[in-house]
């Protein structure tokens, strides 16, 4: 067992390190954020344990990594996790300020659409693709769902998975 604070515990196994992350302290978007930063350095797998924690497995790309390198990953990942968790909180708190500055910066730089831009614009009323969830509010994107919504989502997932 690698020595880390109680809210993140890490175990070394063959060629990989497993971290158990307390979701009370590190919300899921923070775990996703930190994991995303590591996918070019490691193979990253997420699981849930029976106690509500998320188990993050960081598997070295090198099949025979030095133990020291794996241990370094724990520290590095923990730092990124903390940074993402704090950013998650700050973003929620400063959302209006960040949105105002971002939209002004982008709108100012892009300017109004030209006739060429409008020629290729989709004027149909169909929904548009929004893979990053830019058009969603924070609550829609990351907020907790009520039980009815969760049940609905699980049902939808069942169908999707059965394709």
């Amino acid at each position: 067992m690698h020595q880390t604070p109680h809210n993140v515990t890490a175990e070394l196994e063959e060629g990989a390190i497993r971290l158990r992350v307390d979701r009370e302290i590190y919300p899921l978007p923070a775990i996703y954020g930190a994991s995303y930063v590591f996918i070019d350095r490691c193979f990253v797998f997420l699981e849930r344990d029976g106690e509500g924690r998320v188990v993050v497995t960081l598997q070295a790309r090198d099949p025979n990594p030095a133990e020291e390198a794996l241990r370094a990953l724990v520290g590095e990942f923990s730092n990124e996790l903390l940074s993402c968790a704090w950013r998650h909180q700050i973003t929620a708190e400063n959302r209006h300020l960040i949105e105002a500055v971002t939209s002004q910066a982008l709108a100012g730089a892009m300017g109004p659409p030209s006739l060429d831009d409008l020629a290729s614009f989709d004027f149909t009323s169909d929904g548009f693709e929004d893979p990053l969830g830019i058009a969603q509010s924070w609550e829609e994107k990351h907020g907790r769902k009520n039980k009815a919504q969760e049940a609905g989502a699980a049902g939808a997932g069942e169908e999707e998975g059965g394709r």
Binding site: R87, I90, T91, N94, L97, I98, V101, T102, A105, L106, A109, M110, G111, P113, S114, D117, L132, I134
Partner: peptide, 21 residues
């Protein structure tokens, strides 16, 4: 306009806003 509106630019604008850092 396509280049300035690119998703990487949007991400960079958000990432370099010190009020979210």
């Amino acid at each position: 306009r396509e280049l300035v509106g690119h998703e990487t630019v949007r991400a960079a604008v958000i990432a370099s806003n010190l009020d979210g850092q």
